[in-house]
């Protein structure tokens, strides 16, 4: 577990974009959105500078040079939050939570390579970061679902673990939790990508024990104290797919909900990896609709050989629009 002390670039990105939440203090109205930050980062790159340069004491010239893309006063107010930064970093640190920025060498390459500017500028986490580079099977589904589907999902997680593949999921109740439980129970490795409440979830006893055993890493693009929002949950789906080499959707609504949106985005647009849908048990309109969009039926693999075949199917559609993105992580 690492990523602290923070690099100067990580400090700068935190100051510019992160809410730095402690208690219920009001958030700064000046925070840069991901889009605004990307714009500033590009501008700095063109100037031959980097975010950390904004923190060298009293560099008035650089602030003025950023005026065309970002209000000088707003930037000044953001980077002067240094003491607040030290407060939250200390809090994370004492709870074994790390943070890294897109500018850091440890930042998972597959996220940067696959998501480009959509890669979260900051990644918070608790647990062994090496698990983030291991790829594996993503399992997603809606929160509410029935018992047989939960068992099916646990079995899928279990199989991934027995085949030595990492399980990537969302850490929400229902499907996500079942997949992760199945994998952990079989001694497998798990990446949980959270949309909210990293601090609380990391301290939960069952998670804490798996983290200590280096089986589980919990990560989130959002502040460890952030609460649930629909927007975050949607954005988080991108990260789940980007960290995996194949995905299984076990349940989904049609035309609504985060699971649907995330799967459709993969099938129609990003095409980072093969997407499977559950093929046995109770039928589902959502899954049928995904099939129509090109999702593959889960072939219910029974052993490691069959399971491995899932990761290199013969019939994945070639990338349509984002030609420059590679299908599998570059080395």
């Amino acid at each position: 577990m690492m990523a602290l002390p923070l690099s100067p670039n990580a400090q700068a990105i935190l100051l510019l974009t992160a809410p730095l939440m402690v208690g219920h203090a009001p958030l700064s109205p000046d925070l840069l959105t991901p889009g605004e930050y990307n714009c500033l980062a590009r501008h700095l790159r063109e100037l031959g500078r980097q975010p950390a340069d904004l923190l060298s004491s009293d560099d008035g010239d650089l602030f003025r040079a950023c005026q065309p893309v970002m209000d000088e006063g707003r930037l000044g107010r953001l980077v002067r939050r240094g003491f607040l930064l030290s407060q939250v970093v200390e809090r994370w640190e004492s709870r074994a939570i790390w943070v890294m920025s897109r500018a850091d060498a440890e930042y998972p390459r597959r996220l940067k390579g696959r998501l480009r500017e959509d890669a979260p500028p900051l990644l918070y986490g608790c647990g062994d970061i090496r698990l983030l580079t291991s790829g594996g099977l993503a399992v997603v589904g809606s929160r509410q679902t029935n018992h047989p589907v939960i068992e099916y999902t646990m079995a899928a997680g279990n199989l991934a673990a027995r085949c030595g593949r990492t399980l990537v999921s969302g850490g929400a109740k229902g499907i996500d939790q079942a997949a992760m439980d199945g994998a952990l129970a079989a001694g497998g490795n798990v990446v949980g990508v959270l949309a909210d409440s990293l601090e609380k979830v990391a301290l939960k006893r069952e998670n804490r024990n798996s983290i200590v055993e280096e089986q589980l890493v919990l990560i989130s693009p959002y502040d460890p104290c952030a609460g649930f929002t629909v927007g975050h949950a949607m954005q988080r789906n991108k990260v789940i797919y980007a960290l995996a080499d194949a995905a299984l959707v076990v349940s989904s609504d049609v035309n609504k909900g985060g699971t649907w949106a995330g799967a459709v985005e993969q099938l129609d647009k990003l095409r980072l990896l093969p997407v499977y849908v559950r093929s046995t048990g109770e039928s589902s309109k959502g899954l049928d609709a995904l099939r129509e969009k090109g999702a593959l039926p889960w072939p219910n693999p029974q052993d490691a050989g069959e399971f491995e075949a899932l990761f290199s199917p013969t019939m994945v559609n070639p990338p349509a629009t984002q030609g420059s993105l590679s299908l599998f992580p570059e080395k």
Binding site: L4, P5, L6, P8, Q11, A12, L15, L54, L55, S56, S57, D58, V79, R80, G82, F83, L85, S86, Q87, V89, E90, E93, S94
Partner: peptide
């Protein structure tokens, strides 16, 4: 010890 950690994570622009 806490103060030490706080100082370590302070950005250089804080006096």
């Amino acid at each position: 010890r806490l103060l030490e950690r706080i100082v370590r994570s302070l950005p250089p622009n804080l006096r």
